[in-house]
């Protein structure tokens, strides 16, 4: 995935079954963000990979004051990339089983 400066990782091991997964997001390189970034640490949240949209979570982070509006896109993309990887891994596990 592209280096967006925002890192998203699984906050717990993926059992491959739950639609709701725990993710952890933090800023690795604030120079890649357009807006002013307040260093608030790692943000942990649950995400439903079947029903939720990464950009929606990014928007909620903006509304909560974690990121500037101009960075909603980059945050959404970072979550989207990680979710795509998790889905890909799950599909691969299913097809190899």
């Amino acid at each position: 995935a592209e280096d967006t400066g925002v890192r998203v990782e699984l906050a717990e091991e993926d059992d491959g079954r739950k639609a709701s997964i725990a993710l952890k997001l933090w800023v690795e390189d604030s120079r890649k963000l357009k807006g002013k970034y307040k260093d608030s640490g790692a943000i942990e949240f649950t995400f439903d990979i079947e029903r939720e949209v990464p950009e929606g979570v990014a928007q909620e982070m903006v509304e909560s004051g974690f990121f500037h509006e101009s960075d909603a896109k980059i945050v959404g993309k970072s979550i989207r990339d990680r979710v795509a990887l998790i889905k890909w891994r799950r599909e691969r596990t299913v097809s190899s089983a």
């Binding site: 890192r7 933090w26 690795e28 390189d29 604030s30 120079r31 608030s40 640490g41 790692a42 943000i43 942990e44 949240f45 649950t46 979570v57 909620e60 982070m61 509304e63 909560s64 974690f66």
Partner: peptide
């Protein structure tokens, strides 16, 4: 541990905790 919780108007919970130094890129 200094984790804090933020609940959004949509009901989502964000748990904020410090990032370990080792996980940060050198700036």
């Amino acid at each position: 541990n200094t984790a804090t919780q933020v609940v959004t108007s949509a009901g989502r919970r964000f748990i904020v905790s410090p990032v370990p130094e080792s996980r940060l890129k050198e700036q």
